[in-house]
Amino acid sequence: MSLLSNAALRATSGPLILNSGIGKLKMDEGTYGYLKGMAATGVPAVEKLSDQQFGKALAFGETALGAALLLPIVPAKLAGLGLTVFSAGMLTMYFGNDEMTQDDGIRPTQEGTGLAKDFIMLGAGLALLFSSKK
């Protein structure tokens, strides 16, 4: 993968995730609870965390991943691994919640459109992960 294509994948997904993580740093506990409930549809073990623990971990994780994608010192394969795992986790919510998909189980409903972007991020993560750059 060329340096330009690597940078393009990182520069499009990095700011999106970084902004999302920073936005979650100051959310209230009720919002963390809502997000935890959504996450639990894909990863049931999340229910064991308190709303505050989950929310802070999510905010920190997204912020760290967004920063890693934007920092050129982080190897492409490592950034790609992080993006792949993150987007795959997001897709478990997409497929685990019937309200996110239409009757065919694939196409997003209005509620699922926000999570459907994670298919694109999964592709970007896999491209970085399997790139020839180290």
Rank of each mutant, 00 (worst) to 15 (best):
S2M: 05
L4A: 10
N6H: 06
A7E: 15
A8E: 14
T12M: 14
T12E: 13
T12N: 03
S13N: 12
L16F: 15
I17E: 01
S20H: 13
S20M: 11
G23S: 11
K24D: 13
K24C: 11
L25H: 13
K26E: 15
K26W: 14
K26N: 13
M27N: 09
Y32P: 00
L35K: 03
M38T: 09
A39C: 13
V43N: 11
P44K: 10
V46G: 01
V46L: 07
E47F: 06
K48P: 01
S50V: 08
A59M: 03
F60T: 09
F60P: 00
F60E: 07
E62L: 05
E62G: 00
L65E: 05
G66E: 03
G66R: 01
L69E: 04
L69N: 03
P75Y: 04
P75L: 05
A76S: 12
K77F: 03
A79K: 08
G80H: 10
T84A: 11
V85N: 02
S87E: 14
S87W: 09
G89D: 03
G89R: 00
M90K: 02
L91A: 00
T92W: 07
F95H: 10
E99C: 02
Q102N: 01
D103E: 15
E111H: 07
E111A: 15
T113M: 14
A116W: 14
A116S: 14
F119V: 02
M121G: 02
M121W: 13
L122W: 10
A124S: 13
L128S: 07
S132V: 11
S132R: 08
